[in-house]
Simulated assay, not measured.
Amino acid sequence: MNAIYKSEAGRAAIQARYRDILRQWPVPAEQLHLATREGDTFVLASGPQDAPPVILLHGSGSNNSAWRADIASWSREFRVYAVDLPGEPGGSAESRPALGSEALAQWLDDVLAGLELSSASFVGMSLGGWIALDYAVRRPDRVTRLALLCPGGIGKQRFGWIFKNLVDHLFSKHDLRRSAAIVTGLNLTDHAEILDDVTLTFTHFTPRTGKLPIFTDDQLRSLTMPVLVIVGEDDAMFKSADTARRATQSIPDATTLVLPGVGHAILGQTAPIEEFLRK
């Protein structure tokens, strides 16, 4: 297994920042460690234990900190399980299940078993959206609702989905913070803390390589649950118009939102997703 961090010092810096974020988590949360076939999986569980379950899957180069702005609202009505993906800079094992195989679905089988869930709603972002969609295709009886933010696997990828490769295309001098702003679509001034975190991560972290597999029309047509797809019109990583078109045409029960002036990082959608989950 290839190391996902460029150095032990880099690993320590990223993990220290993550621990700091967890100490400031906006709601009470249980920190769970689940045994899976991909190794230890770290989960933050919040909300009433008898409430409808929701699984959150963040994007590439991220961790559960991606849900900081949403968790206080969602955990009022739902039992929310924020899951750190394996092979990403969070609290889970560093193994990287093969994309396009049964491996990620089998890993999620283990996660649900560890949480004693037979099914749940899923909310996925970018790579996490691809993983949630892949699970819904392979295990439709285990996904009750599916909310996807800037998901991979539906629309075409612009540069390949690897952050570092996109950075290399944009800046020969590797101005990583400015590159992060362009990739995410976030303003350098208004979203300084988020961009600082992205810069820290990609200074020390090596993301996955290769393109995300694209789901076929037949796979999308096979989805039996309600699906919400939210994309940014100016997404630098995926062709959002392509994503919206295919989702609308091929997913039987799809609601598609295209946000004007928004890039790959989609913020401020707490309320629409909560409304979708409670239907």
Rank of each mutant, 00 (worst) to 15 (best):
S95M: 03
A136W: 06
A147R: 04
R208F: 03
D190T: 06
E275K: 13
W107F: 08
F215H: 15
L267E: 14
Q49L: 11
L34C: 10
G100N: 00
T224G: 12
M225Q: 14
D175C: 03
R245Y: 10
A29E: 01
L220W: 01
G160R: 13
S73F: 06
Q157M: 09
N2W: 09
S119Q: 12
S95L: 12
D242I: 09
F171S: 15
G128I: 04
S65A: 14
L200N: 10
G124T: 13
V123N: 05
V137L: 01
A271I: 15
L56S: 08
G152I: 08
F78R: 15
L228H: 05
P89S: 00
L117M: 00
L200R: 09
T256H: 09
L56H: 07
N2P: 14
G153I: 08
F215M: 13
A69Y: 12
V262T: 14
S240T: 03
E102T: 13
V143N: 09
R142F: 05
I251H: 12
Q106E: 13
A45T: 01
S172T: 08
N2T: 11
R278N: 12
G129Q: 06
D84I: 04
F202G: 08
R79L: 04
Q269H: 11
W161D: 12
L34H: 11
L104N: 05
E77C: 02
I55W: 02
E193T: 15
I194W: 01
L44S: 08
A136S: 08
R246P: 05
L195D: 00
A241I: 00
N2S: 14
D175A: 07
E275V: 10
S73L: 08
K6N: 08
G210K: 12
G91T: 02
F276C: 14
D175T: 01
T270V: 13
S250K: 11
P207M: 03
E94W: 05
Q157A: 11
K156I: 00
L188P: 02
H169F: 05
R177C: 10
L166H: 09
E275T: 15
Q269Y: 04
A244R: 06
D242L: 07
A82F: 10
T256V: 15
A105L: 01
L223M: 10
V80I: 11
A241H: 12
L22H: 02
W25D: 05
R278D: 06
F202D: 05
L108T: 05
V27F: 07
K279M: 07
W67H: 08
S60E: 14
L34R: 05
T189N: 14
G153L: 07
D109Y: 02
E233P: 06
V80M: 07
G232E: 08
G128R: 07
M237T: 13
G91E: 02
A35L: 06
A35I: 07
L146W: 09
Y135S: 01
I266W: 07
A13D: 10
L99T: 00
A29F: 11
S65W: 10
S240H: 08
L99I: 01
A113T: 10
A241T: 10
V227N: 01
R19N: 14
S119I: 01
S240N: 11
S240I: 01
F202Y: 15
R208E: 03
G91Y: 05
A147I: 07
A180L: 00
T36V: 07
